[in-house]
Design a protein around this nucleic acid. Structure first.
Lengths: 326, 326
DNA sequence: CTGAAAGCGCTTACAG
DNA sequence: CTGAAAGCGCTTACAG
């Protein structure tokens, strides 16, 4: 049925050892023999069983990816960056979700114990940071894609939240705005504090409202600010969903964007192009972060040391209609 | 280092065979022995090596998922449905992308030959349908999540495109619209023909423009229709991106939605809630399609026969501001 | 009910 | 440069 190394060995009239050697391109094989073996391999369409190789070598050439959810707006970007890098290196990619709660987590940790993968990439796993830390301490290579400012006790890839906040403020300031309404996500996220600090460094005045990373937060914050008579000439939303809610509330209040109030978001989700007007926003390089994390992990699996400080990638201000340039 | 079945056997003072038996809950073990073995397993935190089990059993309890891209707007929904189902069944999920072209495809087919997974789930793989068909004929269980109306020569999960088109027409008609502008994707997609047929069954008149599934197509189609003086009182866009483009072009032309022209899309992407006004659209149950496909495949791996005709899931009209009810 | 042995398909010292 | 043999960690007839 299945073509095995024995079939190849028999047909090429060499030992399995020799076949294995040409497979793994160890030098010590006679060129003629090697050529003959390679011919047989092609003729038979032989591909080594990944399971058997893994068992014999004690490594599966597979990377695990753990995420809380696959439906978050930017998750596809991260995963694509990871997948491109991992595949190009010839590794497999095992995907795990914490989506079904405790049951998912058990399934995942069992797979860790089962040695299903050699290293782990984690994207924002919420409440599992402790578990992950102990897995890392136990010897499992782990890298976190960290858009929340968790700063874990193991290698991670982050972005310049502080500079991103500052760039939003600088842009608004340059276009003559000076009374911002800042709508943040939860303050216990490191990224929220960083974005806020960066923003205030440039534009220290204005109103700050804390909420969730949701459209409802953006809408509610703007409605309440307007109702209470607070005046503001721009909104800095800590993500694009908040910004979308703000846009809607402004429109419903009869205010024009950007003439009366300009709006800047954070993330640059695909939907940022489709709001009315299109959203000026601080882009997080999610795909690049996925790529960088994968490269870090693969390097670690190759024996290179993984840096302990986070690898930090730059944000970029994307200017669209909701807050045009000066 | 690693706890193996031998460690458990030794400590429980039984043979590996017996340990294996309690692991796989074959009945023929003395209850007392079984209990003792289970205690040792817990005490040692033993989990069987998935690689070794796979090699011995000739099956990896892993499912492959092949997709062209992870960044398509509805891909996360499909994958989440797949992941939930696959994980709950205790299977692993290996993810492959055709994203890097021929190189990706080679990586993928090698993994097939390497027996890295027991069955394959495919999401819209564009040009690989022939390859997949021959893999299926060669004995690999394959199920396709088919939102494009490919109708492959192997099991698949589809949606009611025709009924979806009809429901859009019925909704528009009931709210008094009778002169539609229909903007479709490429006619060589089965889903496009089906959606169009369903729509015209109810609303046979109007203008039909073919294009791509992009915002630019929607925008251009509306601009051109307006420029040429064609009159229409509603737009049926074959997906939500086209609809978003149509909304923008209508707004820029000074037309009000839905007062002057109402708009219906297809898909119900997350962005459909964020357009201005929010988009009435025909929802495709992508997560349910992912779940159904996974269930089908897992049943097949369990030895149950997989039905050859596509499993068809219903669409649902989601009414929002761009085309309110009558 | 239980165990010794062979086998799954590879890799890797070891010896020549 | 090459091969016989042991081993990776399991499962599964087979025998008792």
């Amino acid at each position: 049925m299945r073509v095995t190394i024995s079939d190849v060995a028999r047909r090429a009239r060499v030992s399995k050892t020799t076949v294995s050697r040409v497979l793994n391109t160890r030098g010590e094989v006679d060129p003629a023999t090697a050529a003959r073996v390679r011919e047989v391999i092609d003729a038979l369409g032989y591909v080594p069983s990944s399971g058997a190789v893994g068992l014999a070598r004690g490594a599966s050439r597979t990377v695990g990816v753990l995420t809380p959810s696959l439906t978050w707006p930017w998750m596809g970007e991260v995963l694509q960056g990871v997948a491109d890098t991992v595949e190009a290196a010839g590794y497999g990619l095992l995907l795990y979700t914490c989506h079904r709660g405790a049951d998912s987590v058990r399934h995942f940790t069992d797979q860790v114990s089962a040695r299903a993968f050699d290293g782990l990439l984690v994207v924002e796993p919420e409440n599992t940071l402790d578990t992950l830390t102990s897995l890392y301490r136990g010897g499992l290579p782990v890298v976190l894609v960290d858009d929340r400012g968790h700063r874990p006790a193991f290698p991670s890839v982050a972005t310049t939240n502080r500079a991103g906040g500052a760039s939003a403020a600088a842009h608004l300031s340059a276009s003559g705005r000076s009374r911002p309404l800042v709508v943040t996500g939860r303050r216990d996220f490191g990224c929220v504090r960083e974005r806020l600090d960066g923003f205030r460094e440039v534009l220290p005045t204005g109103l700050v409202v804390e909420g969730e990373f949701t459209e409802a937060t953006g809408r509610g914050a703007v409605e309440r600010a307007l109702a209470s008579g607070r005046t503001f000439d721009c909104v800095f939303a800590h993500n694009d969903l908040i910004a979308a809610g703000a846009l809607r509330a402004l429109r419903e209040a009869g205010l024009r964007v950007p003439e009366d109030v300009s709006v800047v978001g954070f993330d640059d989700l695909p939907m940022a192009r489709h709001t009315e007007p299109p959203l000026t926003t601080v882009r997080q390089p999610m795909r690049e972060m996925g790529r960088a994390a994968a490269r870090l992990l693969l390097a670690g699996l190759d024996g290179e040391p993984i840096p302990d400080e986070p690898v930090v990638l730059p944000t970029e201000l994307v200017v669209r209609g909701s807050a045009p340039g000066a």
